[in-house]
Design a protein around this nucleic acid. Structure first.
Length: 858
RNA sequence: GCCCCUGUGGUGGAAUGGUAGACACUAGGGACUUAAAAUCCCUUGCCUGAAAAGGCGUGCCGGUUCGAGUCCGGCCGGGGGCACCA
């Protein structure tokens, strides 16, 4: 079964065991649902043309070690992989070459698959998923239909981030500093018709349920900040021009309402024009034009310098009737709260800056109780200058003032979220088509009768050039809706996807019962259910496919459901999810949202998709800089596998430092772990390839007691470290063991075997080889994980460090359980210690049993 | 500006409030060898010292403690996130 290699020939050994695992289906997830399960998930890769980056095997090795160890520990392990294969690079390649993005994608997948196999990962390759496979995206489209049905998908013409270079819109989350996340191209605001998912409806649950997941704190905090819940109140300010009604503002500080000295509305606020008096008309128009022309980059860059213009109108403070001017300024944004604020310059730094700049009055209404009363004052205190509320603590005042306004019907407590609805459409070819057609109102109403269960409570519609169109979902039975072939993959650049040019696909007669379609150029088929329809031309963003792939692995071939209810129940959600921190608010928030919708729909039995999340750190180049082609500091896993073998690569990636840490690649360090594996090889096999004679086959060897003890310590440490993902220290421990093994003149066979089992999750190929060469039946993972014997760990003698005034002055070997007095007596008898006690008065003795004896003297 | 993480030898890093530097890398010395590679052994935080030993050391300044890399306060450097969100 094994190779007959006489020395550690990894180029022969590694492919040998990879093909063994392949043909034996070693890593096929079991079907025995009476066994405890363990589901280890990696964030699946986008199969780029560049092949695997060294960061991929880092995280993947971590989850692989856990998977292999859990398997030996008796778990039914699910460890799958797949491809997040829709995406811009494939499409840009298609635009350039004119070849279908699918062919390029499949080539890249083949390369990724080859690389991952050569790394020896314990994936169940029969469960591979590919987001671009119609059998897969059928269910992505199906989930979209569930969102649609529940009123969580709608269409809106709204200012969105448009990237001229990518010729598509981008979500808020995909734009940083006015540049696209992909490619770093400038973006601008455009008004375009878009599909939007109502993720805000889940804001409170997405926030609250973070308490139930075992995630890095930093990631939880990032999601919390992104969701951005803030409690406050909506208050109505009467306008002096009563014909205009009221101005509604949102504030988190209703306690400062007596300090309002002006109001601000965003330039895009619907009342902005009506509030503008004739005298101010020209100024306001100029200002609005300037504000609209500002790119967001400018708007943030100029954050220090506030701008604004007086509207000419006044509002009346509901608390005290004060007449306050209304300004128009772009430091208030339309997208949050009500797009209008009450400004309290004394207690808000932005309002303060603005008031100083435009010479507006500042009224202090909160007193800190301290002599230093510099404004703006943002902390807690007691109310002053606040009419009947003067003297209240600010927290009580928030409640009482809100209640007071509520009782008069001019205010109420509200909660606002920074989270915006999720912009879900892209003007691209290479994505999932929306299973939606646009029809006229009459046809929609005809469809309602038979399709009611598929439709949202309120129809999704939009009006363009005077015509109102209604969104009708395709029947689920007709899915998948596949992509048509196109002449050109290049988006038009005017906000329409290339799909808009495929007339026979686009303009159709649709049977709304069955989803069947024929081109509109043909005669309308006979029957009551045929209507004229135009397909949706946008496609879904890349996030769609990755929102639910972890569910598809449970039952990847199922064509009746995303997965069977039995398997959804047995495998549940991943027990461990490993992937980069860069997805902290994108993928991880979107997937949680979809999962909760599926939970509400009764499809999945749990409310959260990822119980335990772990982020592997970034591996930097040798120079300590981020790896990049332009810097020329990248590392290709293929090269390391060829020069040192994948076992060495895996071990080295784990030995580099804590898995979560950012750490530089160091080509010298790799020799150390390679030597370690060679040493293990030599300790098992002689130069001729036979079993090392120092290993006694019948276990009669006079194995040194320290080696036996060290084995048990190593079993304990490695087992615990694997569970905690502390792979660097478990490798250190195995190195300590191998150093001792080398020095031992004789060793029991069972000791060597147990050690190989500990090594197997880390360096699986060499472990399988040596296991087989020592006469055991592969796979090594089928043998039960070694257990340590606590009795072996009990020391007969302990080293106690003696300190005098906290300084290390000597060491004692003592029996366990020795009393403080006895230890102290021994210490006093020690010449080195005694020298530091001469002529001193002993004030105190501290004894930590078995560890330290500290003598305090003066 | 705000929030979070982080700072340990020449290098990567280790260390339940209890011997700082495990385990490796690099470097130096030695053994084996005709020679080299491989392997094995020794040294390797800094200072004084021939040695024994002693002093100083975990970014900086303070504090708590018998004892601080670890806990607390302030400052400095590096990384990440958010950024007019009322």
């Amino acid at each position: 079964m094994a190779t007959n290699s006489t020395d550690y020939d990894f180029l022969q050994i590694e492919p040998h065991w990879q093909s063994f695992w392949d043909t034996q289906k070693t890593f096929r997830a079991g079907t025995d649902t009476s066994k405890p399960k363990f589901y280890a998930l990696d964030m699946f890769p986008y199969p780029s043309g560049a092949g695997l980056h060294i960061g991929h095997p880092e995280g993947y090795t971590g989850s692989d070690i856990i998977s292999r160890a859990k398997r030996s520990q008796g778990f039914n392990v699910l460890h799958p992989i797949g491809w997040d294969a829709f995406g811009l690079p494939a499409e840009q390649h298609a635009v350039k070459t004119g070849t279908h993005p699918a062919s390029n994608t499949q080539n890249n997948i083949a390369n990724f698959r080859r690389q991952l196999k050569s790394l020896g990962f314990a994936y169940d390759w029969e469960r591979e998923v590919d987001t671009t496979d119609p059998k897969y995206f059928k269910w992505t489209q199906w989930i979209f239909l569930q969102l649609f049905k529940r009123g969580l998908a709608y269409v809106d013409e709204r200012p969105v981030w448009w990237c001229p270079e990518l010729r598509t819109v981008l979500a808020n989350e995909e734009v940083t500093d006015g540049k696209s996340e992909v490619g770093g191209f400038p973006v601008e605001r455009r008004n375009l018709r878009q599909w939007v998912l109502r993720i805000t409806a889940y804001a409170d649950r997405l926030l609250a349920d973070l308490k139930d997941v075992d995630w890095p704190d930093s990631t939880k905090r990032m999601q919390e900040a992104w969701i951005g819940r803030s409690e406050g109140a909506e208050l109505l300010f009467k306008l002096e021009n009563a014909a205009l009604g009221d101005l509604k503002v949102f504030t988190t500080r209703p306690d400062t309402v007596y300090g309002v000295t002006y109001m601000v509305v965003a330039p895009e606020h619907p009342l902005a024009d009506a509030l503008t008096t004739a005298a101010q008309r020209e100024q306001v128009a100029n200002y609005k034009k300037k504000a609209a022309a500002k790119s967001d980059l400018e708007r943030t860059d100029l954050a220090k310098e506030k701008s604004g213009v007086f509207s000419g109108s006044y509002a009346l403070n509901p608390a005290n009737g004060a007449r306050v001017p209304i300004w128009i300024a772009d430091y208030v944004v339309m997208g949050y709260g009500t797009g209008a604020i009450m400004a309290v310059p004394a207690h808000d730094d932005r309002d303060y800056d603005f008031a100083k700049q435009f010479d507006l009055p500042i009224i202090q209404v909160i007193d800190s109780g301290k002599p230093d009363q510099t404004l703006p004052f943002l902390a807690d205190g007691k109310l002053i200058n606040s009419g009947p509320h003067t003297g209240l603590d600010w927290n009580d005042a928030k409640k009482q003032i809100t209640a007071y306004f509520a009782s008069k019907g001019i205010g109420k407590a509200t909660i606002n979220y920074k989270l915006r609805d999720w912009l879900f459409s892209r003007q691209r070819y290479w994505g999932e088509p929306f299973p939606i057609v646009w029809v006229n109102e009459a046809d929609y109403n005809r469809a309602v009768a038979s399709r009611k269960a598929d439709l949202p409570p309120q129809p999704v519609k939009y009006t363009s050039e005077g015509k109102t169109l209604f969104a009708l979902p395709l029947p689920a039975v007709s899915l998948p809706l596949t992509l048509p072939d196109v002449q050109s993959y290049l988006p038009s650049g005017n906000g329409e996807s290339p799909l808009a040019n495929v007339t026979p696909w686009l303009e159709i007669w649709l049977n709304f019962e069955t989803g069947a379609a024929v081109p509109a150029t043909e005669a309308k088929p006979v029957g009551e259910s045929w209507i004229r329809a135009r397909r949706e031309t946008n496609t879904m963003p890349q996030w769609a496919g990755s929102c639910w792939y972890y569910l598809r692995y449970l039952d990847p071939k199922n064509d009746q459901a995303i997965a069977s209810p039995e398997l959804l129940k047995y495998w549940g959600v991943p027990d461990l999810y490993v992937g980069g921190a860069e997805h902290a608010v994108l993928h991880l928030l979107y997937a949680r949202f979809w999962h909760k919708v599926l939970f509400d729909e009764g499809v999945v039995p749990q409310a959260e998709p990822f119980k335990k999340l772990f982020h592997q750190g970034i591996i930097l180049g040798e120079d300590g800089e981020k790896m990049s082609k332009s810097r020329g500091n990248t590392v290709n896993p293929d090269d390391i596998i060829a020069s040192h073998g994948t076992d060495t690569l895996r071990l080295y990636l784990m030995f580099l430092g804590p898995l979560e840490a950012m750490k530089p690649w160091n080509p010298n360090g790799i020799e150390g772990v390679h030597r370690f594996l060679q040493k293990v090889w030599r300790e098992c096999l002689s130069r001729e390839g036979a079993i090392n004679p120092k290993i006694s086959v019948d276990n009669s060897a006079a194995e040194p007691a320290e080696l036996t003890k060290l084995l048990h310590e190593t079993i304990k440490k490695v087992t615990e470290d694997i569970d905690a993902l502390r792979f660097n220290t478990s490798i250190s421990q195995m190195m300590i063991f191998s150093n001792a093994l080398q020095k031992a003149p004789a060793v029991k066979r069972t000791t060597v075997l147990a050690f190989l089992q500990l090594l197997a999750p880390f360096a699986p190929h060499v472990a399988e080889e040596l296991w087989a060469r020592l006469g055991e039946k592969p796979s090594i993972l089928d043998a039960a994980w070694p257990k340590y014997d606590p009795a072996q760990l009990i020391a007969t003698e302990l080293k106690v460090v003696v300190q005098v005034n906290g300084k290390h002055r000597g060491e004692l070997m003592v029996a366990p359980g020795i009393t403080q007095d006895a230890a102290f007596a021994l210490a006093q008898a020690d010449a080195k210690v005694a020298a530091h006690l001469v002529g001193k008065e002993i004030k105190r003795v501290i004894y930590v049993p078995g560890r330290i004896l500290n003598i305090v003297v003066v």
